[in-house]
Amino acid sequence: MGWRTRSRLTSWLLGTLTIGFLLYQWMPIATLSLLSFSGPTGGTTFPMNGVSLHWYRELWEASIMSDFKPPLLRSALLALACSVTTTILAVTAAQAMRGRFRGHNAFFYLLLLGIMAPGLLVGFGVALTARLLGIEPAWDGTAFLVHVSWTLPFGFMTMLAIFNRFDARIEEAALTLGATRWVAFRRITLPIVLPGVIGAALFGFSLSYDEFARSLFTTGSDVTLPLAVMAQLDRQLTPELYAIGTATTVTSFVAILACTASLALIRRSMRRG
């Protein structure tokens, strides 16, 4: 057997493995969305007992007890705020790293601690500190801070990777052509690193949006969506939860697609005139 034949066999094997993995990754979500379309008498497992949009209507016209709309709004706003904050801080921090300031290595590792630190404990610690300071935990206060400490390292890493490949001489060329540092950043650097900026924004949004552990102790009485879902799971499991899971996944998909599309557009505009 020649090496080409063998490598073809290997590629089949690895291909099968990859497809298997993707199925394993997406089947639970597919099952969930399928069951969310079951009839009004449908349960939380198969068989579906008819097909309807009943549970989505239920979600929309919810009772006070199980109204997901306020937590959804909070989560979305929180995620949006996290996204904006992460983007700005990640870009500026990565830009600062390019200057190799004194202690930049320590700064790098300390910032990355946000990824390593156990979320539940970080949230608890923040809640505790807030209490000591007489601050009431709130979704738009303490929770926001904890979420940013979680999302920022991801955005920061993205920007570092992008700046690593960025040719600083392009910026220098702008300076020698009469551009001030700010103009060079705005007109030259920013457009070139824009794909990374979008990536950082995406991390900021998606990581905050479904964060549970860091929210548990920090949101106070007005909970975010993952906490509301968890509370509902404790009370009563209905396909309504499946409906909200599906709706959320679709929203995320749309967000990612929008980002991918804008990235493709940027890339195309780089290539052609």
Binding site: D167, R169, I170, E172, A173, A174, L175, T176, L177, G178, A179, T180, R181, I188, P191, I192, S269, M270, G273
Partner: peptide, 22 residues
């Protein structure tokens, strides 16, 4: 600073702005 000097510079790999038309 460079932007206040009466100079221009040409770099080895030209350092063109990739996102701008000629």
């Amino acid at each position: 600073p460079p932007w206040q000097r009466d100079i221009a510079m040409m770099f080895q790999d030209f350092a063109l702005f990739p996102h701008m038309t000629v």
